[in-house]
Design a protein around this nucleic acid. Structure first.
Lengths: 342, 342
DNA sequence: CCGGCGCTGTCAACCGATTGCCTCGCCGCC
DNA sequence: GGCGGCGAGGCAATCGGTTGACAGCGCCGG
């Protein structure tokens, strides 16, 4: 039976108009304002009346119209979450963490994607702002001025990027990267390559700076392998350059690039980790599936999303200033790194 | 000035109140209704006046307040997308496809997760309905009655599940599954196991029914390996049962279960595909990363999401009845299947 | 010379909920 | 007995934008 055929037919047009406080008021025989108070100022109204109103509201299937409330109060109980690319697994846990916090706090999450274009990002935030109480942007591509400008309209929080004067939540990349360098040093590696990400990304520059500083301090040599392709797994095309550089281990900007590099190595017959040890960043879904499984740095993205959303809601509610927790990263050793045969 | 102090500080409270049509009207010297008409009924107003109004609106940074419009017109220009589990990669492409269509049509996407609980799913749809023009639910967990009930309030579309009387978009699993059976038969397999998913899932029963019908027709023997664990990768614990059953190939409910099974095989030293050929379903991210890479069935989830959203928007706009495209699935042969040594 | 028409723009009601202010009735206390 | 106080509920304005009804005006034809 081929029952997969899509059903286009449907009884349309028969939708109920949705009950309002006026309907409830009429049923109970009170004024709409009394209904409003009964429903959200417990105690303001006589207990018995309140009870009758609640029952009537229940019976009518009354739901508050968020638009109407928003119009008057200016609070929409919605927050926007903007990522540059939905299909990038780096964002999954962030989205989930943020969604949980928002939902628990009674906020509805509006979700949007900027398709990796800063102009779309700007326009999208602008478009969304009237509908939401605040915006959480993950790894924003905008200038600091643009962010500051958007911040004048509604609260905005940035995740995975440090922006002066704007609340942001960023895991501490240093702890994990230092652990990675220690790990590689213990394995006998002296010459490291950093497989760089998009040069405009704050996180990319940040990671490189940390690596540079600590590698030098540890007496290791390090070199940045610049990207020649802006797509995330553009790492694959750079294998030749890496081999030519003489490094024995690579720290990649992120797991996607590391995974791309491993694939390339497989194709070219380069042994990983025998010839080249590889460390990723983020521990995304898939990092432990690939063979060899990827040694990488866990940046607890779920917590980043949750913390960023908490930070945003704290601003929206205007209550206490939210103090972001320390979010250390840590190395997860798997199969893609091994000791250098000395 | 020169407030370069660290992140926590931020000039709060200094947010602009956002321009309204009243502000624009005052600047131009016309009435608010004229501004409204100028902005969204081109031609209704004198061209020069309209021009002046547009300029003033631009200068003031005027943005329409969607809440205000929604209150009167009943159209919010938002649609909700509900999935059961954000971290399930099956949904990524669906979300992306749906987001693109919604954004292109000028709709804002509200995103929510039901945490795999049908009660949360129901409550979430109910909560979201007043704010949106329609709801797209992916792989709904609800009864048909519940879905019908929700459908009375606002348009609803279901993806990845067939529901009588409710518009739905489902890829045709039959084409891909038949190809998989053909593929396995060519490789010499005569005895197949279906590694079943959650028994309550429509898609699970659907796939099993299709497999049963066609395997029998092809003269192959087939057996359903029931789940003993509701989590997606619960497949890992079932290896013993599979081996005991004597089948030489497994078709899994989805890639997650197939990947779990492969991991288990690795741990237990069972050769894949030498001892057991494995076919997944969905071709999610990661299916080609694992080793051996997974033979699976591509169900073009991006198109499913796009089609489902188009279907929803067609209902919302009340324009033409949307005719969902045929969405065939097809087999992708990789390394996890091989011929049976006869 | 007058009626009527088309073009522009204004008026005012309305969507649903919230909230400051007011009223009414009742109680208790001096 | 008079008055203050308080509990309970109503009135009406308000948020921002939309829209049907209508008014002023210039112009045309009869």
């Amino acid at each position: 039976m081929s029952d997969d055929s899509p059903a286009a037919v449907h009884r349309v047009g028969s939708r109920k108009p949705a009950a309002t406080i006026y309907d409830v008021a009429e049923v109970v025989g009170v004024s709409p304002s009394t209904v409003s108070r009964a429903l959200n100022k417990p105690g303001r109204i006589n207990a018995k009346t309140e009870e009758r109103i609640r029952n009537a509201a229940e019976a009518l299937g009354y739901r508050l119209n968020p638009m109407a409330r928003a119009l008057l109060t200016g609070k929409t109980a919605m927050v926007a979450l903007l990522v540059s690319d939905i299909t990038n697994p780096v964002f999954y846990d962030i989205v989930r963490g943020a969604e949980n916090v928002a939902t628990d706090a009674g906020y509805t999450l509006v979700f949007a994607e900027s398709h990796r274009r800063s102009d779309i990002e700007f326009a999208t935030v602008e478009r969304l702002q009237p509908s939401v109480d605040g915006v959480l942007v993950v790894a924003s591509l905008l200038d600091e001025e643009q962010i500051a400008q958007l911040s004048e309209t509604k609260p905005i929080v940035i995740a995975l990027r440090r922006v002066d004067g704007i609340p942001h939540v960023v895991p501490n990349s240093e702890t994990g990267l230092v652990q990675a360098l220690d790990h590689l040093q213990e394995l006998g590696h002296r010459s490291i390559g950093y497989l760089s990400g998009p040069t405009t990304f704050w996180a990319n520059r940040n990671r490189w700076n940390i690596l540079l500083e600590h590698a030098v301090a540890k007496g290791m040599s390090i070199v940045e392998i610049p990207p020649d392709d802006p797509v995330p797994n553009g790492g694959a095309t750079r294998l030749r350059r890496i081999l030519a550089s003489g490094v024995t281990a690579i720290v990649a900007y992120n797991d996607l690039m590391a995974i791309g590099l491993i694939s390339e190595c497989k194709q070219e017959g380069v042994d990983v980790p025998g010839r080249l040890s590889i460390v990723g960043f983020d521990d995304v879904y898939g990092a432990n599936l690939i063979s060899p499984s990827l040694t990488t740095i866990d940046s607890s993205l779920g917590k980043v999303g949750a913390a960023a959303m908490s930070c945003l809601l704290a601003q929206v509610d205007g209550t206490t200033a939210y103090e972001p927790p320390e979010l250390p990263t840590r190395l997860i050793v798997r199969e893609s790194t091994t000791s250098l045969p000395s």
